[in-house]
Structure formats: C-alpha cells, structure tokens
C-alpha cells in the first residue's frame, strides 16, 4: 500500500466588503471551473443585499480615502504592487487555471498587472496637474480649477483578463480618491478574491475596494440603479445589459464609462479611465487689498 500524498488545504473564496471577507448573506454559491471544465472552487454568489452593503461600505470609506494625501494614495497603490509581486506564483497558477494559458504567458500577464499598478501609483500626485488649471479670467479674481474624485464607482470588471483586466479597471478609479464596488469576472472570479487578500494587507483602508462575485446579470442592474452610486464603469457588461444599465444610470445622472470596441489590456492605458471619474471644481476669490 502506498503512502497517501498530503491532502491540500483548499481555500474558501468569499466576498470582500468593507475590509472583511463575508460569505454572501444569501448563503448561495456557484461552481467555478477551469478553462478545461475542471472544478476549481465554489465562489460566493452575491445578492442584491450584498451589493447594497458593498455600496454602503464604499460610501463610508469615501471621505477618508478622498481626503488622504495624493502621496499617501500613491504609496498605498505601490504597496499593493509589492504585495502582488510576493504572491506572483499563486497568481500565475490561478491565471493558468482560469484562462488555460501557458505558465509563461500567465507570468507575463501577472507582471503586466503589477507594472500597471506601479504606473497608476505614480499618477496620484500628477493627474491633478494635468487636469487642473489657473484660469485667466477677465477681472480681479483668483480662479483655480482642480479635479476631485466623483465618489462611489460601480465597476463591472472585464470577463476576460481576470487579473490584468481587473487591476486595469480598479487602479484608475481608486488612485484619484474614488471608492468602488467591483463585480468580478463571472467566469473567472478566483483571482479577484486572491487580489482582495492582497488589498486587505496593503494598508488600503477597508471599503475603498469592495469585490463581489456572482451573476453579473443579477448584480449589475442593482448597482446601476443604486441612488448612492455616482458612476458606473460598464467595461465587462455584454451589449444588451450595458444598454439597460446605462438607462438605469440616468435616474441619478451617474457618470457612465463604456469603452467602445475591444480593449487591449497590455497597451499603455492613457488617462481616460481616470478622467472619466473625476469632477472639475472651480474656485473663485476676489483679489484686493
């Protein structure tokens, strides 16, 4: 009789809300399979109530995070990159399982995700300079435009690119001071939850990023119509769902980002994903003695 091999200790994949890892309040889960169809894990199937809890956590975290210095936010994003680098092997395994790519290709994708975070980290105290202006008004007034985060952003992460795509939609939202609720790729949600474990240990205040796994068609409409959400990124929504979400978003005039065409996640992203969730505030003051 051969000695039995050591039985692996599997991970329970849960949601990430307000810095904690709850299961769905609904008690539901769904089976996640690899690209080959093998069972990987049961992921939480978030409910409307979970989505609302996540929005309320994001709202609660907004004053602190938007009020943090840009330098501080930049350091925390860089810290997330450091923590990801340390878990590189785990991410590579998960991307291989989810996408069925080679370990080498998965390594490239994980590296690109880490580099993307570093790229955005550096923007924290620079985007304001690019977007702001001292306006030469025709009168004795000091007039200054600065950019401010929009608020709570609901993000539908892309279905493809469970890690690089995910990082590429979260980083530009939070680097400027927004907080967010993210619906992970429905098909491949596991890297998102592993990322949540990274976020939880990167000095990122709880509630800045909240991650939900589950059925996109069930969750997205609740977020798009939620009156305390200020903006939606519909990148991961299929066409029909995106249109109805855009209509729902009109109710409280949410800002809507919906990229046209397929996005190349490996290309340098540009600043559009940041500016989509920035407001311009202009302050006037008389000049005089």
């Amino acid at each position: 009789m051969t000695e039995p091999g050591r039985l692996a200790v599997r991970k329970t994949y849960k949601l990430y809300i307000g810095g904690a890892f709850p299961r769905s309040e609904s008690g539901r889960s769904y089976a996640v399979t690899s690209s080959k169809g093998d069972f990987l894990a049961n992921a939480s199937r978030a409910s409307r109530k979970d989505a609302r809890d996540a929005v309320s956590a994001a709202r609660k975290a907004f004053p602190g995070w938007s009020g943090a210095t840009a330098y501080n936010r930049g350091q925390i994003l860089y810290r997330i990159a450091e923590m990801m680098e340390g878990r590189r092997a785990q991410f590579v395994d998960e991307v291989v399982a989810a996408d069925g790519v080679s370990a080498r290709k998965a390594g490239e994708l994980v590296d690109a995700a880490v580099d993307r975070l570093v790229w955005y980290a550096g923007w924290s105290d620079k985007i304001g300079v690019i977007q702001g202006a001292a306006n030469p008004v025709a009168g004795p007034y000091f007039n200054l435009s600065t950019s401010e985060p929009t608020g709570v952003v609901a993000v539908v992460a892309p279905q493809e690119g469970p890690l690089l795509g995910l990082i590429s939609v979260i980083a530009p939202v939070i680097v400027t001071g927004n907080t967010c609720v993210v619906v992970a790729s429905e098909r491949a949600p596991l890297p998102a939850i592993t990322l949540a474990e990274v976020l939880a240990t990167s000095d990122l205040p709880g509630g800045v990023v909240n991650l939900l796994t589950g059925r996109l068609a069930e969750l997205a409409p609740w977020l798009a119509s939620h009156m305390d959400v200020n903006a939606v990124d519909l990148t991961g929504c299929p066409e029909e769902l995106a249109v109805s979400c855009e209509q729902d978003a009109a109710e409280n005039l949410k800002r809507v980002l919906r990229p046209s065409g397929k996005v190349d996640w490996l290309a340098e992203p540009g600043i559009e994903r940041m500016t989509a969730f920035l407001e311009t505030k202009t302050v006037w003051h008389p000049i005089g003695v």
Partner: peptide, 24 residues
C-alpha cells in the same frame, strides 16, 4: 459642487470651467 465662489457670487468667464457634481 462644481463652482465655489468665495467672498463673491455668480461670476462667469469663458476661461473658467462651469458645471456640476451629482444630479447637476
């Protein structure tokens, strides 16, 4: 708010961006 007037109010200028937050 998109425009804050300090010690003045209702000033407008073509060089100065105007527009709102939230449902404005």
């Amino acid at each position: 708010a998109g425009v804050v007037w300090a010690n003045t109010f209702n000033r407008f200028d073509p060089t100065s961006p105007f527009g709102g937050y939230k449902e404005s």
